[in-house]
Simulated scan of single mutants.
Amino acid sequence: MSLPQPVPPSWKDLGKSSNDLLGRDFQISGTQLEVKTSTPSNVAFRVFGTQASKSNQINADIEAKYSDKAHGLVFTQGWTTSNILKTQVEAENHLAKGLKFDLTTSLLPDSGKKTALLTTTYKQPGLHTRAFLDLFKGPTFTADTVLGRDGFLLGAEASYNVTDAKVTRYAAALGYSAPEYAVTLHGLGNFSTFAASYYHRVSPDVEAGAKAIYDTKATTQGVSLEVGAKAYLDAAAFVKAKINNSGVLALGYTQALRPGVKASFGLALDTQRLNETTPTGPAHKVGASFVFEG
């Protein structure tokens, strides 16, 4: 008798362990500040700002989220320094258990430009499927599905332009996920790009991973390769390092200063141009991120 199957990850989360290991906590593009607070009435506020290291331009947004867990409703309203108004409404487990509806809209009052994306998600043991309808672009209908059984994962995605009546994008993925390791293979961009990722929890304090990408349409031949590792120094701090086949070495350090306060620092070094500069500045990058949560 087979064991009950868990709900597999969504299409966008296939290979997430490796992507997070190699993509997160490397704050190298400037300075970030994030402040998150919540109230007893289930309202959460978030202020997020970034200052780019090259242009020194500051971009920020403020967001308020109201959650009604008893009725499965979440309402989010945001406003950015680019004068974009964003609204998101989520409703879960209303028509059926595991079914979720999500409507995300944005409006630029200066130009009247607007977007609206309706998302339907359905999750059951062994199945995770989503459908998206972009109401103003195309309109375009996109669907993806992931099937999972005994650790094996099979996923596919396709986009259909309703006006042109043709499939505009398709992709597929195959993977295996276990508690200590995960392997994922992707065929993206109408099978013009292929990616393979690997994640391994070596021990409770050490993680390692790698990712390889082959783009058949790239001007330069060969495979792009990136490897990295993460090590916990203690319960409140960890370090990360990664390097790619172009010789760029990235380092990250994250420290929880106290409950609700976290600081991250990043450094990227082009090991092939240690003493050179690019036309826009130094070949190396540094950055920092601070998160306050209460």
Rank of each mutant, 00 (worst) to 15 (best):
T37L: 03
S55N: 03
K69T: 04
D68H: 01
V43K: 07
S53F: 02
S55I: 02
I62P: 01
F45L: 15
A60Y: 10
I58V: 14
K69I: 03
I58Q: 00
V35H: 02
S67N: 12
Q57F: 03
E34Q: 05
S41T: 13
V47S: 01
Y66R: 11
Q32I: 07
E63V: 10
S41Q: 14
T50G: 02
P40A: 14
R46H: 08
K65E: 13
K69H: 00
P40I: 11
T50K: 04
Q32D: 13
K69A: 05
E63I: 05
K54F: 05
E34G: 02
Q57N: 14
Q57H: 09
S67W: 04
N59W: 06
I62N: 05
K54D: 11
K36Q: 13
Q32H: 06
I58L: 08
K65L: 13
F45Q: 04
S38M: 09
A60W: 13
K54H: 09
F45C: 06
K54Q: 14
S38L: 11
P40H: 12
T31M: 04
V47Q: 05
G49Q: 09
E63W: 07
S53C: 05
V35M: 07
A52I: 03
N59M: 05
R46S: 11
N59A: 11
S38H: 15
L33E: 02
N59K: 09
S55W: 01
Q32Y: 07
N59D: 11
E63M: 15
N42C: 06
S38T: 15
A52F: 00
F45D: 08
N56M: 05
S67L: 09
T37K: 09
K65M: 12
E63K: 15
Y66G: 09
P40D: 15
D61A: 10
Q51G: 08
T39M: 06
L33W: 08
T50E: 00
I62V: 14
Q32L: 09
A60I: 06
S67I: 13
K65S: 11
A44P: 04
T50L: 00
K36E: 04
